[in-house]
């Protein structure tokens, strides 16, 4: 099976879908001729023409607003917001329009739309190129929110998102584009070509939304993670020797609560990790759900390791980022309680 980087897998998903369905269109800032600042759409304009893959004015509300209109017409737009941090001008279009259209029109109009956004930190991007705004989307009824952690999932999840009849927020951890980054920023990059999840099947396949996956079986503790933090969690587990069960959520909404519940009932302990800020982060929702569904199985309080509640800093990036050392400490503390 061919090995691909995550950005190649994402591009492959759009290629497969543009080939299969004339209604799939792709656009955004620098997306057309140049192929995107992360090269996510490279070659698509040359292959499918300018009316199906094109550059847009720098106007995120315009990109998503136009896409809502196109989706209502019957197209399947898959648009790129250059960085998730630039999403805010489009938030009204996402929340009040894309997410509500099916409901408010009683199904007369629908919005099969994918909004791709590079997300997360680790690239010296400071506060405007590093944010993880997933909780701003999971809080909105009518949206689905997806965060892949590897090339194989990224392709299957993106194909599923493009085929989905409803709007999907597709958050791409940009630090994973070229390799399974585990938080050790001072070590050489491991490429996806050396990782088994860099194996990306050819052609069309789907990773269904709403299905988590157990990345590592374990008996001592359940570690809930998504995106980059899956790899950080793997590193922390390897370094501490804690026999944790690592669950890669893959989709935050709909959430695979069944898989989480089964694991926590087995292990009796739960640690939740994410890059995003702590307060009202998605970890708070996970923590509440674990408490509601597994309270009598819990041996220790549910613990969260997250980014601090500060803007994402520039020079202090690695003091902000919840790396393997911080995650490892939380694992050990949870086991000692």
């Amino acid at each position: 099976m061919p090995r691909k980087t995550m950005i190649e897998a994402i591009r492959d998903a759009m290629d497969v879908m543009m080939d299969r369905d004339d209604n799939v269109v792709v656009f955004g800032e620098d997306v057309g001729f140049f192929g995107g600042v992360f090269r996510g759409t490279q070659g698509l304009q040359a292959k499918y023409g300018k009316s199906r893959c094109f550059d847009t004015p720098i106007n995120e509300s315009g990109i998503v607003g136009a896409a809502v209109g196109m989706a209502a017409y019957g197209l399947r737009p898959c648009v790129e917001i250059q960085f998730a941090d630039y999403m805010y001008p489009a938030y009204d279009q996402i929340v009040s329009e894309a997410a509500r259209l099916r409901y408010r029109s009683n199904g007369q109009f629908t919005c099969p739309l994918v909004v791709r956004m590079p997300t997360g930190g680790g690239i010296s991007g400071g506060q405007t190129h590093s944010q993880s705004p997933e909780a701003l989307f999971t809080h909105v009824s009518g949206l689905k929110t997806v965060v892949p952690s590897n090339p194989s999932d990224a392709k299957g999840l993106l194909i599923a998102a493009i085929e989905d009849p409803d709007p999907v927020i597709f958050l791409e951890p940009k630090r994973l584009y070229n390799g399974p980054f585990d938080g050790h920023h001072d070590r050489p990059i491991t490429p996806w070509s050396k990782h088994e999840l860099g194996e990306v099947p050819n052609g069309h396949y789907v990773v269904p939304p709403g299905k988590a996956i157990v990345r590592r079986q374990g008996a001592a503790l359940t570690l809930l993670a998504y995106g980059t933090m899956v790899h950080v969690g793997m590193a922390a587990v390897a370094e501490t020797g804690v026999d944790a069960e690592i669950i890669d959520l893959r989709t935050l909404l709909p959430l695979d609560l069944e898989t989480i519940e089964a694991s926590v009932r087995k292990t009796g302990r739960c640690v939740i990790i994410h890059e995003a800020t702590r307060t009202s982060g998605f970890g708070a929702e996970l923590s509440a759900l674990v408490q509601e569904t597994c309270f009598y199985h819990l041996e220790t309080p549910v613990r969260r390791v997250t980014g601090w509640d500060t803007p994402y800093p520039y020079a202090q990036e690695w003091d902000y980022f919840p790396g393997p050392a911080r995650v490892g400490r939380a694992l050990l503390e949870t086991m000692e309680q």
Binding site: V68, G69, M70, A72, E97, R104, F109
Partner: peptide, 30 residues
């Protein structure tokens, strides 16, 4: 809202539908 009569679902938010109309028209051209 009445799709059959060419009347897009009203939002209640202001101006959001203006750019959507442009997108719908672009789709027709595409």
């Amino acid at each position: 809202s009445s799709k059959e009569d060419g009347f897009f679902s009203l939002s209640g938010n202001l101006a959001t539908q203006y750019i959507q109309a442009v997108g719908w028209a672009m789709a027709s051209a595409i």
